[in-house]
Design a protein around this nucleic acid. Structure first.
Lengths: 404, 404
DNA sequence: TTTATTAAATCAATTGTCTTGACTTATTAG
DNA sequence: CTAATAAGTCAAGACAATTGATTTAATAAA
C-alpha cells in the first residue's frame, strides 16, 4: 500500500458545498438574465420554490439581492422580481504592465467606481510594489469616501500582468518581465492590503472582463484573443476560465510562425501581431501616455507602411483564428485588447472573410464567428477586478468541493 | 421580465448530487491509486471516516469494490484495503471507421474481454447499421457466456467515429464520412441494443482510453494527438474530456498549413500527417486487413520516400506540439494512434528535440513533454468503451447537478 | 510482561439543507 | 361572481454528512 507515495484523490463534498453552489447559481442566473422572480429561478435551476425562497431570503439579508416592484403576468399572483444589488460587493483590480500600473474598483455588477494610474519606477519590483500599494490605498480611500461600509464588502484583489509565469526565460528580451515574475508580488500585496490576492495573465483578465460584461456575457465556450502590448488568449471553457496545468494556458503569442512563405520564421507570433510591433513600426515609445491617441491618429491618417502591417497581422490572425476554431470549437472568438478601438475594429474588418473551419456551420448561434470586444487601456485592470467577483460568486466545480 | 426569452441558468444541486459525487471520487481514487483503506480514503478526499465507511459499504454491496487482506502498517489497527472489482461493471465500445467496424467489451478497470471486427458493406449506413447491431449482439452473447450476470451490469455503449459532426462539409472528399454523419445512428443503435449510447470522435475516444489506462492515467491536463487514418486531438482539461460547444473540439487535422516554406499551402494538416497520407505514398489500400503489418514492414525496410515523409510529418507535428503547448499549458502531450507501434515510436523520436515553449520549464513534472501512447488498431474501440465507464463513474461537475 | 500510544473503524446522536404536500394570496378568464 | 392559474409560504419529513465517544488491534516503551 501507499506508505510513501502521496495519495491522489479529488475532494469530496457535503451539504455545505451543495448550498454554496446553489447560492452561486442564483447570483449567476440574475447576472445573465437580469431580474427574475423566485418562481422563475426555481424553474430555471431545477430547485424547489421553497429552496429558492430560502436562498433568496438569505442573499437579501446579506445585501446581495433586492426585490423590485411586483409585475403582473396574466393570471395568478404577481411575481416579485429580484435583482443583484450593485453595491453588494466590491473588488479591486490591478494591472501591472511594462511601464505603467493601473487600479480600478468595481462593484458586483462590474461597474467601475474608482480608477487610478501611475508610472512604474525604473527601479524594478522592489520599488514598484510601494507605488502599487500606495495606489491601492488611495483607491480604497476614495471608495470609502463614496460608500462608508464598502471596504468591508471587498471580496478580493486581482492582479493581472503579462505572462508566462514560472518559465525558464525563453527569449531574454524586453518582451518579458522577468524581474517582476521572480518577485514575491502576491505575498507582498496580500500582506500590504490584508486582502485575498490572485494572479492571472493579462489575456485571462481581459477574458474575465469580456465574460462579466462584454461580448462573452453568458457564453460558456469563448476564446478571447487579447491584442495588447503582447498577444495572448483567454480561454472560457465550460463557463470557466481555463488556466492549464501552470496557469499559463492561452499564450498564443508564443506560437511560432503560423504563416507560410518565410522559411526561416522562428519568431513568436507576438513579435508580429502586437501593439509592441506597431509601436516599433511607428517609432512610438510604448510608455508614452498618449499612446492610444497617437496610434489611433496614425491609423486614421494611414500610410503604405501601416496598411502593409495591418494586412500582415490580419493574415496571421486569420490563420490563428482558424486554428483556434479547429482546436476549441467555441461559440465565438472575440478580439479584444489593450489597443485603440479603431485598431481592433479595423483588424476585425481586415481579418474577414474568415478561412473555412468547423465553425462554419449552417445553424450558427446568434454569435458571429469573430467579433470585436472591449478595447480600452483599462480593460485588463477591469478584468483583474472581475476575477475576485467571479471567484466568489460564479458557479464552479471547485466551489462545491470541500476546502482542502 | 422574461416572458418570451428562455431563462438561462445553471442547474442546482442537493443531497443526492453530493452523495453521487462522493461515490464517484471513491471509485476514482481507487482507480488512480490502487487499493486504499477507508482511512486512506477519508484523508485523501477530506470526508470523515464515518462517511467513507458508509459509502464503501454501499459500493461493496453494489459489487463495485471489495476488501483485500488486512495489512499492518506499524502501530494501530491494521488497515483493510479496498480495490475495484473488475467485473463490477462492463461497457461496450464501437468504432466505426471508413472501411471497418470494431466492437469491444471492457470491464470496470478497462480490461478488454471481447473483441469483434467486421468489414463495413459499401451500401452505406442503412446497411452498415445492421452489421453493427449484429456485431454487438455477438459480443454480448460471448460476454454472457463468460459471466452469466454481466449483461445486467452493462452501463452503456460508446460509439466513436471520425468527426467533425454537424458541419457543412468543408471538403467534399473521401476523407469525410458524410453519409454516416447524417444518419440517425445513435437512435438506431440505442433502439437496437436497449443501451444508453453516446457518440464521440475517434480522437476523443483515444484520449479516453489513454486516461483510463494509458499514459494519461491520473493526469488532469493532457493533450492526446491521435494519429490514425485522420489526425485529431483529445483534450483532457481539468480531468475531463473537453468537447467544445458542439463536440468537435480537437479537430487539429483541420488546421491549415502550420509549416513555413510553401506559400500556397491551404490544405488541412491531416492531408500531410495521417495514415491516409502514408497509405497514398506507399500505394496501400487503407481497407487492407494487413495494413498495420504492411506499414510496419515498409518502415523497417525504409526508403528515401518514407524518410522524407517522416521528416515532413515530424516537422509539422513539432510545430503543432509547440502550438498546443502554448495554448493549453498541459502536463504532457501524448502521441497515440490507430497506427503501428513502430510508426508512433519513430515519429516521437523524429519529432525531438522539441521547439522551445512554455512547457520547457526547469521543474518539470515526472512526465516528459511528449510521450508515445497506445498504438493499436483497437485503441479507439477501447476508448469508445471507456466513455460509458467514465460517464458513469468518474467525478465531474455535471454529475453533481440535478438532472434537468 | 505490562502499560501507553497510535491508528482503523464503528456506533449513536446531531446537524443542516433540500423536499414534500398542504395552504394562502393575488390576479385574470369566462 | 366563480373557476382557474400562478406565486409564494408553512410545517413536517427525509437524507447524507458530521460529531464525539467507543471498540479493536497493532507497536513502542516502561
Amino acid at each position: 500500500m501507499n506508505d510513501k507515495r502521496p495519495i491522489r484523490a479529488k475532494s469530496g463534498t457535503n451539504l455545505g458545498g451543495a448550498s454554496a453552489h446553489n447560492r452561486r447559481i442564483m447570483i449567476d442566473a440574475l447576472r445573465v438574465n437580469g431580474a427574475l422572480s423566485r418562481a422563475d429561478l426555481a424553474r430555471a435551476t431545477g430547485l424547489t420554490p421553497q429552496t429558492v425562497s430560502n436562498i433568496i431570503e438569505e442573499l437579501a439579508s446579506d445585501g446581495l439581492v433586492r426585490s423590485q416592484a411586483t409585475v403582473r403576468r396574466g393570471r395568478g399572483q404577481p411575481a416579485t422580481p429580484y435583482q443583484l444589488v450593485p453595491e453588494g460587493a466590491f473588488a479591486i483590480g490591478l494591472q501591472i504592465d511594462r511601464h505603467v500600473t493601473r487600479t480600478v474598483i468595481v462593484n458586483l455588477v462590474g461597474e467601475v467606481l474608482v480608477k487610478f494610474e501611475a508610472k512604474l519606477p525604473p527601479g524594478g519590483p522592489a520599488e514598484g510594489v510601494l507605488v502599487i500599494l500606495d495606489l491601492v490605498r488611495r483607491a480604497r480611500a476614495q471608495l470609502a469616501a463614496r460608500t462608508s461600509d464598502a471596504d468591508k464588502r471587498l471580496v478580493g484583489l486581482g492582479v493581472a500582468m503579462p505572462g508566462p509565469f514560472g518559465i525558464n526565460t525563453l527569449y531574454d528580451d524586453p518582451w518579458m518581465m522577468t524581474a517582476w515574475q521572480n518577485f514575491p508580488l502576491i505575498d507582498r500585496i496580500a500582506e500590504g492590503t490584508g486582502l485575498e490576492v490572485a494572479l492571472q495573465n493579462d489575456a485571462a483578465a481581459a477574458a474575465t472582463a469580456e465574460r462579466l460584461l462584454g461580448a462573452a456575457h453568458g457564453l460558456d465556450h469563448a476564446i478571447c484573443i487579447y491584442f495588447g502590448y503582447g498577444l495572448g488568449a483567454g480561454l472560457i471553457l465550460n463557463g470557466e476560465l481555463y488556466g492549464g496545468a501552470h496557469a499559463n494556458a492561452g499564450e498564443i503569442g508564443m506560437i511560432l510562425a503560423l504563416i507560410p512563405g518565410d522559411g526561416a520564421d522562428v519568431e513568436p507570433l507576438e513579435h508580429y501581431a502586437s501593439m509592441a510591433s506597431l509601436c516599433k513600426l511607428l517609432s512610438i515609445d510604448p510608455s508614452e501616455p498618449q499612446l492610444f491617441e497617437m496610434v489611433s491618429d496614425a491609423l486614421q491618417k494611414g500610410s503604405p507602411q501601416i496598411e502593409a502591417w495591418i494586412a500582415d497581422v490580419a493574415q496571421r490572425l486569420r490563420r490563428a483564428i482558424q486554428a483556434l476554431e479547429s482546436i476549441f470549437d467555441p461559440q465565438t472568438i472575440i478580439l479584444c485588447g489593450g489597443a485603440p478601438r479603431r485598431l481592433i475594429d479595423r483588424l476585425v474588418k481586415e481579418i474577414g472573410p474568415l478561412l473555412p473551419s468547423i465553425a462554419d456551420r449552417a445553424s450558427r448561434f446568434p454569435e458571429a464567428r469573430l467579433q470585436a470586444g472591449l478595447a480600452d487601456p483599462w480593460s485588463v485592470a477591469l478584468g483583474a477586478a472581475a476575477e475576485p467577483i467571479a471567484r466568489t460568486f460564479d458557479p464552479r466545480f471547485s466551489a462545491i468541493l470541500k476546502s482542502n
